[in-house]
């Protein structure tokens, strides 16, 4: 913006920005600072005495084999949900892009689950996988697979993955379709004239051109799978059976509100902040590149 389009006023800009700064300070910066502070303290369960213990909470958290299990579990969940939701969406978007007439109808049919809350998506699949009355759960039991996510940790994990990925397909679909529609027809046609078939065109032209979209979605999906899956898990398996579906966010919540281990929970929060920070930085790296072009 050049200088001539700037208004001159001493106090007005502060007044305009004040509400956002106030909310940011009170509900974002201050709690985050408190989390960092709290993570350096040990408080007795009655909140009567606190002592400064340095990084001991972090050491406790990182040396706890259960925490490391949770890290691995969350990473597996994030990778599987991201891969599943993105691959499915890419296939559907590629099909919808080339379908010509009727693509609008398919688009409408495919994008509405974006509006379904993760918690409700979890509840829907919880019924489907129910071993006694769910269509899939009962079907599997009839086929001789012993299916009961309430007892089998792996099966509970599958339930969470399917529900979380199902909900995310529509988001990825919207972005992939938008990305596909920006690819110039002429490029595709030139390749076709040169004799490249549909498969070859997809892998050598379409997919590389979708790179930026794919990278953006990768980060968004990872953040979703790390953080928003809490609702899917809490509304259905509650982290069970035997912690088989306990994720990092679930553990922060559980240790903080149920176990009342404030220092440990705060240390975990700070570790999560670092994780989001890293993912956000990645995203910005991408946005910068996009802006530079």
């Amino acid at each position: 913006m050049n200088a001539s389009a700037v208004f001159k006023n001493r106090s007005l800009p502060y007044l305009l920005i004040a509400p956002q700064i106030a909310v940011t300070l009170a509900f974002f910066i201050w709690p985050a600072a408190m989390a960092v502070f709290q993570s350096l303290l040990r408080e007795d369960p009655f909140g009567l005495a606190t002592e400064f213990i340095g990084l001991a909470n972090y050491v406790d958290v990182l040396e706890d084999p259960r925490y490391l299990d949770t890290v691995i579990r969350s990473c597996v969940l994030a990778v599987v949900v991201t891969a599943g939701a993105m691959a499915t969406a890419l296939v559907l978007a590629t099909m919808a892009d080339g379908v010509g007439r009727g693509s609008g109808v398919y688009k409408t049919l495919l994008i509405w689950p974006y509006a379904v809350a993760p918690a409700l998506a979890g509840v829907l699949w919880f019924l489907i996988f129910n071993p006694s009355i769910g269509v899939v759960g009962r079907g599997l039991n009839r086929l001789g697979v012993v299916w009961n996510p309430a007892l089998d940790g792996t099966q509970a994990f599958v339930l969470i993955v399917v529900a979380a990925a199902w909900k995310q397909i529509s988001y990825n679909f919207v972005f992939f379709l938008a990305g596909l529609q920006t690819i110039p027809r002429a490029v595709i046609e030139a390749a076709a004239i040169d004799g490249a078939g549909p498969g070859r065109r997809f892998f050598t032209i379409v997919l590389p051109l979708l790179g930026p979209t794919t990278f953006f979605l990768l980060v968004v999906n990872l953040v979703y799978a790390f953080f928003e899956t809490f609702a899917v898990i809490h509304a259905t398996t509650r982290g069970g059976p035997n912690s088989a579906t306990e994720t990092l966010v679930f553990k922060v919540f559980n240790d903080g509100f149920v176990g009342l281990d404030l220092g440990g929970s705060a240390a975990q929060s700070v570790i999560l902040m670092a994780l989001v920070g890293g993912l956000t930085a990645l995203q910005f790296h991408f946005l910068d590149r996009k802006g530079a072009r």
Partner: peptide
Amino acid sequence: IFMTLMLPVEVRIVPTFKV
């Protein structure tokens, strides 16, 4: 303002509750 992108409610849940 920008920093809030790194602070989803999930990571600051306990202190935010307190505030």
